[in-house]
Design a protein around this nucleic acid. Sequence first.
DNA 1: ATATCATTTCTATTTTTAACGAAATGAAAA
DNA 2: TTTTCATTTCGTTAAAAATAGAAATGATAT
Lengths: 114, 114
Amino acid sequence: MLEKQEKIFKALSDSNRIRIIKMLQKKSLCVCEIKDILKLATSTVSKHLSILREAGLIVDWKDGKWINYKINPEPDALVSNALLYIQLQIEDDETVKNDRKLTCCVDRNKLCCT
Amino acid sequence: MLEKQEKIFKALSDSNRIRIIKMLQKKSLCVCEIKDILKLATSTVSKHLSILREAGLIVDWKDGKWINYKINPEPDALVSNALLYIQLQIEDDETVKNDRKLTCCVDRNKLCCT
DNA sequence: ATATCATTTCTATTTTTAACGAAATGAAAA
DNA sequence: TTTTCATTTCGTTAAAAATAGAAATGATAT
């Protein structure tokens, strides 16, 4: 239980991962869309997502050739409270607000099909 | 703000530091008492405490030859919510429960005066 | 003033983490 | 079935974090 809580905090202890959670709390996204907003390598974003998934904070599902990520709709108590906590925090942060603006405009078909 | 939140999560992303917070939420303690419970070197405990202090989660004050640590009584909004969150979580954890039992018995005069 | 002693800072070591590019995977499209 | 392409896994590198012992600090007590 302590280990589970530690894992959740570790997952949230990176600003890029906090940004991902804040984005996903507004809109489901695929890897290439997140990559475009965070300006990181695809493999790096994929790794961040796997850490968040391992902690139980997010889930993924296939949609055609894309894999979408969203907030875990069936979290256990620890995860549920962590998600609620982060949902209420840093709402006024400029980076977070800007990320959200960008999530509205991203177009996976333009981003990925080169 | 995002950086502040990241710092708080980083401070809480180590199980020894979670244990320290859970202990301090029950009782103020000095370094040697925490050292005795966590079974870590004094310098290591001191380092953990400085990380928690830097994040704004705890404060210290002198009491004779000891330096006591307690939960920050005047936390800002981010810290306040984080402290509340952790106060409500993992209450049933065995390690946490055992740590609390031990905090009642520790005697700094026996621990430190060798 | 000096000694004592709890704590912090410094130095070093080991482990963990973040990052990226290249190669592997696996599903969809041609 | 072969190609395409989004994503993951692997291998590597660099940076950060956890740990402990030794030395420094600083306040209390003698």
